[in-house]
Design a protein around this nucleic acid. Structure first.
Length: 361
DNA sequence: TCTGGGGTCCTAGGACCC
DNA sequence: TCTGGGGTCCTAGGACCC
């Protein structure tokens, strides 16, 4: 028996959940996003595999998606429905004998198991999830979290793939650094500037050079990513959130000061509901503004006293906005409340996030 | 083509103190 | 008159992920 990390990822999760209540749409291109209105400012949450064949991708503006695939069926996002389906999936994972489950999002989780046959474990998870929810998933098997996470991509859809120290370079060595979890286009470009193009290059890069470019924490972390080295400990300790925020993109840009004040007040009230449910008051207020056409600014301020008062939070956000505002119309407003940490701080009481650079490799 | 909403973490640089 | 080195706190900004 040896420890394995499994990464379970539901296939086209949101679209698949919608298809369960609309089976007549099966086989047709389906796009879920916004309020389901392609003329509105919104993006694609998930596209079915049929829609992906037309080039539709998550994060794409709905207007663009519809242009690429005019015959697609457009559906509005129904978060509570996906939340409920997600609960069923996670409960199924927790019911696996000996499994430790670390939830990463609605549609994915790490599962830690002790076994001689991780493939059999993976297949049983797929069968149990399908039986309980009618949803298909893919499973990545790894000897570290990052390897398990990346392995899943090679298993999709409905498959199982194993990625370990033994086949890491064979599978990943010649791929671009952006194939790694946590390396996006910006970091990829900066790495390329250092002559680091592939995963193999990154694995071989001098840690001191990486530290000089990215700092003492992130530099060596990227080096470890290149080797597939990360924590292998699956942790089911409940995660304690740091902050709650609300943001809204307005269909019509805001310019009237009274309208703006009302909008911020409403965001502050929603945020207070969330932090009150958490039981920890707001310590710091963050404001995010997107001016038209597409220019985003963020500001924040620490409060003199922690508070649950939406008036105070809203006024602070408004104050931060006034220091920025010069009559440009506003596309988006966001108010975020950073909560007072629990006694003893976060590190003592909560697990680290799965992608935390400090987590030991 | 026109870009959502929910988050997390790291780094740089200034202010301030000893 | 000009000036160090270390530490902490704070804000702004960048990057990434689902």
């Amino acid at each position: 028996m040896s420890p394995w990390v499994l990464h379970v990822d539901l296939d086209q999760f949101i679209a698949a959940v919608e298809l369960l209540r609309r089976p007549e749409l099966r086989g047709r291109p389906v796009i879920v996003g916004g309020r389901g209105d392609p003329t509105e400012r919104a993006v694609v949450s998930t596209a079915s595999y049929e829609a992906r064949e037309f080039g539709v991708r998550s994060g794409m503006p709905l207007k663009v998606a519809v242009r690429k695939c005019p015959e697609a069926v457009l559906l509005p996002v129904d978060a509570p429905l996906y939340e409920a389906a997600s609960q069923q999936v996670m409960d199924t994972l927790r019911a696996q004998p000996g499994a430790v489950v670390e939830v990463l999002g609605w549609d994915e989780a790490f599962v830690g198991v002790d076994t001689d046959d991780p493939e059999a474990c993976a297949r049983r998870i797929q069968a149990d999830v399908l039986a309980a929810t009618d949803l298909h998933c893919s499973v990545g098997i790894g000897d570290t979290k990052i390897r398990a996470k990346i392995a899943t991509d090679f298993g999709k859809p409905q498959g199982v793939f194993r990625l370990t120290r033994d086949n890491w370079f064979e599978v990943m060595g010649e791929r671009p650094t952006t194939a790694l979890w946590g390396v996006g286009s910006r970091i990829g470009a900066r790495l390329a500037g250092l002559g680091v193009e592939t995963v193999r290059d990154l694995a071989a890069a001098d840690p001191d050079r990486l530290a000089a470019e990215f700092g003492p924490s992130m530099g060596p972390y990227y080096g470890r990513l290149g080797r597939g080295v990360s924590s292998a400990t699956v942790d089911d300790t409940p995660y304690i959130p740091r902050a709650h925020g609300r943001e809204v993109t307005y269909q019509q840009n805001l310019s009237d000061p009274a309208e703006i004040a009302t909008a911020i007040g409403s965001l502050a009230e929603q945020v207070v509901k969330d932090i009150a449910a958490e039981g920890r008051p707001c310590m710091r207020v963050h404001l995010k503004v997107r001016f038209a056409p597409f220019f985003t600014v963020a500001r924040s301020r620490k409060l003199a006293e922690p508070t649950y008062d939406p008036g105070l939070i809203g006024d602070t956000a408004l104050d931060l906005l006034r220091a920025l505002h010069d009559d440009r119309p506003i596309r988006l407003l966001g108010v975020r409340a950073e909560m007072v940490p629990p006694e003893g701080g976060y590190d003592d009481q909560t697990r680290r996030t799965a992608r935390d650079p400090r987590a030991a490799g």
